[in-house]
Amino acid sequence: MISYVLRRIVIAILTTMAAVTATFIMLRIAPGDPIAVLLGDMASDAEIADARQAYGLDLPIWQQLMVYLGRASTLDFGQSIAQGTSVRELVLSHFPHTLLLAASTMLVVIILALPIGIYTAVRKGQSASHATNAASLVALSLPEFWTGIVMILIFSRMLRWLPSGGAESGWSLIMPTITLALPLIAVNLRLMSTETINVLRAPYITMARARGLPRGSILRRHVIRNALIPVVTVGGIQLGHLLGGAVIVETVFNWPGVGQLLIRSIGIRDYPVVQGCLILMTFSVIVTNMLVDFAYRLIDPRFRRG
């Protein structure tokens, strides 16, 4: 088990490094120049050259990469070109908001999608289950920006119940959470439902019935646990994405998370910050994958080897 954990951590570090390298190179190849944005149209060639030197942008890409990786290994991700502050501080100051939004979204998704999914599976073929399926199909096809804007129109402009953006109070969390949660509820609900239906047909469920176990016990003790296995995988991937920052929703609701920081930094070609955000995203995905893996081992003993 310990060797397994160590192996996973080494793999995680190598994956992060590979992702850093790839994004680093892509950012340098992409059109646009941070110095031009920073200094504006009026800067002289000499000023631009000085600034490039100051930020190390005059070196060949591979040298820049070496310098960057060297510093990154000491958790120094450089300075924001636009603001001059440390990238680490900047990203970490936005992360709690992203974390909060991701956590509240996943919570809502779990609380709603799993029980409703199980319910529709048990009520297969009845009108309640058809209605839920239709509703989740609609929820799945709504683009986030559209749901977000419609909610702002209704609940902020017309009814004046909720703030349209920002993160000043707990109320601000409601609409971004719902916007993010709706399509995820739809996906997980349908997955939970089909998995439950599949498990209900499994021979070991027939055998549990043959032993006279009541329906409720069978559902609680055998069906749900087995049906959860694929849902945990998918839920983990979703959580990984949420932790990297929800770009569209954070922008629509002016939510000060990592996604918003990323979009703003891309706009002004603030490479070090963009790079920092991307590293955080990669890292979130890697960490949640590891968590999913551990969860898997808890649920399914067949994975407990090595």
Partner: peptide, 16 residues
Amino acid sequence: VGYIVQDPGAALDPTM
């Protein structure tokens, strides 16, 4: 009444 199923392969819950 007890029942012994033809194929024991998948007749036990793999997670318990």
